[in-house]
Design a protein around this nucleic acid. Structure first.
Ligand SMILES: [Mn+2]
Ligand SMILES: [Mn+2]
Ligand SMILES: [Zn+2]
Ligand SMILES: [Zn+2]
Lengths: 170, 170
DNA sequence: GTGGAATACGAAAACAGTTTTCAAAATCGG
DNA sequence: CCGATTTTGAAAACTGTTTTCGTATTCCAC
């Protein structure tokens, strides 16, 4: 069985940087540093991918089972407000969050079979959007581009799918 | 005051065509023709733009006040299933529906000030997406591209906004 | 036309994800 | 430490949508 995708290693230094940046944001806003917020952001930044609230809460509870939904939601809002995290919605009804560490901006391809989310960025695409906006006398603040479809590599795709089912089963 | 946008006239023939197409779909599926469904689709196809369920229900109630939410939701699902209508979500939490009459596929620019939705289509953009998918060994079934921003024509924009406020109040 | 099985309706309840409330607990500058 | 201010967690509320369930309508066979 070939290795599917070399799991990116978490860069602990980068995580620490983010934690500091968030702490500064909290200070700047005159808010308070709390055990719960620290746990939540420490957990979040050590996860990778596009994390749902439930996924995050499950992880957070491993460190502190008494933390509830409300605090996770509230902390995620703060993370978004701080600019360290972006909210995504891929049409399955739940919000997902990602620390935009990799690239400043990117778009997504979502496999409807295995659920894998591929990220991409293309300057020509971005430029073309700008040009089209220009033609319509429109100024873009932000955009979202999502390509829904399927992996062509069926083996890798079904492997991921299987793995996901196992994971869900516990 | 300059004319803002020449309101497209509804093409009654086209509407009748859609009504027929839906009737055929209903037959084909072995479902029943009902007063309510007829009212709802007749109303829907005579509205223009990106219609929310509530907007549609309000209009429908003018013809038959006894029709309820459930039936509107159910009929919209049928319309989508029939392929005559597409569901859109522009991030304000509500589903919107449009008969895709104008062009087979198009993308959207959404003004965050006045709420206006501009539609556009660009073959180069579509082709570029295909190329990027190809590079990722990915097959696109469908995509969504939304540009969020603001009209540059501030006068037209605020005129639309004002009108909308009036409408909401009235 | 009627009978009657199949389907659809509408009001209300249920649902899912998220937000808010509120009383108790934690934070932190003085 | 004090005490004003903020935060927390459980539960309630909220929002848009779906489902339920008893009644009403459709429509095919006769
Ligand atoms: Mn991403
Ligand atoms: Mn449109
Ligand atoms: Zn896949
Ligand atoms: Zn505008």
């Amino acid at each position: 069985m070939a290795p599917v995708k070399p799991k990116k290693q978490i860069d602990e230094n980068l995580v620490k940087e983010k934690e500091t940046a968030f702490a500064e944001f909290i200070q700047r806003k005159g808010l308070k540093t709390t055990r719960q917020r620290n746990t939540i952001i420490a957990t979040f930044f050590r996860l990778q991918g596009h994390i749902s609230v439930e996924e995050l809460l499950n992880e957070v509870k491993k460190a502190n089972p008494r933390i509830g939904y409300a605090t996770v939601y509230r902390t995620l809002h703060l993370l978004v407000e701080s600019g360290l995290v972006e909210e995504r919605r891929f049409g399955d009804g739940l919000a997902r969050y990602e620390g935009h560490s990799d690239v400043e901006h990117h778009d997504h391809m979502i496999c409807l079979d295995c659920g894998e989310i591929f990220e991409f960025y293309n300057p020509r695409l971005e430029a073309l959007q700008e040009k089209l906006a220009e033609e319509n006398d429109f100024q873009i603040y932000r955009h979202r581009l999502e390509l829904y479809g399927a992996c062509k590599d069926k083996e890798a795709c079904s492997h991921r799918k299987r793995k996901k089912v196992e994971q869900a089963a516990g």
